[in-house]
């Protein structure tokens, strides 16, 4: 039905109306743990955006040009996760070799990305939603930016919350959840701007 949706529309939709974190709940683990500091959050956000764009593209190519023609699409999961792990490893080596400075800035985040379910989720979504090649690139990029936006916003809010007097049982994760809920509600305000399935 929406095969003709322009890649640009998908980028916008993936950032705002279908935010991968706030409407699909993906990448919550690192979202909760790594949103204590603004710098950490921003670094991780950039790394996730980059890896997600590239792995979505790679996985699209592998799924449609290798797995489907060979009728081995039941191996999708294992192939996708292997591609992601290998890609992250490759990026890590590449960055270490050519830009030690960037490596020190991003270094600790790269291994974390392998286990970030948002990355695998984005690849699985583009198969389920039957995106085209350009749409997949747009979706990977948009989802990454959306995730980065959410974690950066959260880091800002958490900084503020550090000065609040929160009842003991609600300290920590409980409040983080409630705040995320309010954020998800806010993002629902974007609904109707653009829509993808």
């Amino acid at each position: 039905m929406e095969h003709q949706t322009a890649a640009f529309i998908i980028v916008i939709a993936a950032i705002f109306t279908n935010n991968i974190l706030l409407s699909n709940f993906l990448g919550m683990c690192s979202f909760l743990v790594c949103s204590r500091q603004l710098e950490t959050a921003a670094g991780l956000g950039v790394a996730v955006t980059f890896v997600m764009t590239c792995t979505a593209t790679l996985n699209y190519a592998i799924y449609h040009w290798v797995l489907v023609p060979l009728h081995i699409d039941h191996l999708t999961f294992i192939v996708f996760i292997a591609v992601i792990a290998a890609f992250v490893q490759f990026v890590e080596m590449f960055v270490e070799r050519f830009s030690p400075k960037l490596y020190h800035a991003l270094g600790i985040f790269l291994p974390l990305i392998t286990v970030n379910c948002a990355i695998l989720g984005a690849s699985l979504f583009l198969v389920i939603r039957k995106y085209s090649f350009t749409q997949s690139i747009g979706f990977g990029f948009g989802a990454g930016v959306g995730w980065a936006l959410a974690i950066i916003l959260m880091a800002g809010l958490r900084k503020k919350m550090g000065y609040s007097n929160i009842p003991a049982p609600f300290q920590g994760v409980a409040t983080a959840m409630l705040v995320t809920g309010v954020m998800a509600m806010t993002f629902m305000g974007f609904a109707g701007m653009v829509s993808i399935q």
Binding site: F25, P169, Q171, G172, V173, A174, L178, G181, M188
Partner: peptide, 27 residues
Amino acid sequence: LAPGAFFTLGFLIALYNVLRGPQPEDA
């Protein structure tokens, strides 16, 4: 929808914390 999930889990964790009693080393 999405917000309901966050609220439910948030309150559930808080409830769990109440039932479990205060823990000295909580983050």
